[in-house]
Design a protein around this nucleic acid. Sequence first.
DNA 1: ATAAAGGCCACCC
DNA 2: GGGTGGCCTTTAT
Length: 166
Amino acid sequence: MRQLPPLSEPSFGFAQTPFGECCIVFSNDGICALIFPESKESAYADLDNRFPETDFRQDDAKAIRLARKIFEEGQKPLLNPIGTDFQLSIWRALQRIPAGKTATYAQIAEAIGRPKAVRAVGTAIGANPIAYLIPCHRVIRTDGGLGGFRWGLDCKKKMLDYEKKK
DNA sequence: ATAAAGGCCACCC
DNA sequence: GGGTGGCCTTTAT
């Protein structure tokens, strides 16, 4: 999938959230990543891996403003995820799951018209670059199990509880 | 071009 | 509970 549209003023920054410190990657075209790295170093590595040859400007103040909008005011900024057509269609489907609700991997597969691609759906959801805003945490297994989560299962649990309370 | 690895599921025991 | 085989996309050989 490596074919990046040019980003206008690529930037990133770190900010606190109810689920730990996150790293937000954004440009004038929207947010292209929101991750929960274990350390700054792993954030840099991740960034370098996802956006090779791109040099980012660090802007924590903007990241903090974004985080406040997202996690405190419940706003949803413009998103600019990068992926294959298959992945994009799945990430779009995720955004149709209302907060406080869940869907299963099989239901997502059904929703994009590929009922047999359940396994691939799981993989694509795991590749979601924009945590929380593309709510991959709302997808669970058909048998009721939590399934997996890129940033740790208790993080997934926290996000679900957090949304249920509202 | 091919292999291997996945945030799955249905089905069996 | 657990193991197996099939399913489909992506990434790394």
